[in-house]
Amino acid sequence: MSEQSNPIRSAIAEAIADNPTILFMKGTPEQPACGFSARTVAALQALGAPFAAVDILPDPRIRQELSEISNWPTIPQLFVKGELVGGCDIITEMYESGELAEVLGVEEATKASDPNVAPEGQPVQAAPLGIENRLR
């Protein structure tokens, strides 16, 4: 399908290409709408890693196109430097083993707290472009 005929897919691909760390999730980092998304956000925040976040809930086509691109059926999905790193299970495992800090290029020493408890006031990049805006 050409980019022109599928603006949602190209917006997603662009967002993945443009943001070194991007999380597709249900809800927002401030208000996750699913426990798996919440846990993944908490792991990123515990490492103090900046990331862009896209809420997939406003339109079911976002999830559909994302899963087509990534060949991954569930949400959340974390991409680093354009590559799918994993969903909640993998990110949690990698957080615990220290691999996540390595992949994100942050000091593991900053790993402060339990990933299930999101520290407050961690930097979160503004949601990239307006995937939602393109749906109107």
């Binding site: 798996f36 899963s67 991954w72 059926p73 799918l84 994993g86 495992e93």
Partner: peptide
Amino acid sequence: RIDQHRLVYDVFGAEIGGPIHAL
């Protein structure tokens, strides 16, 4: 890990996210 999980997810196809909300 990604490809290991994909092997398992592929067993269920579209059921993941449908009748199987989470695996």
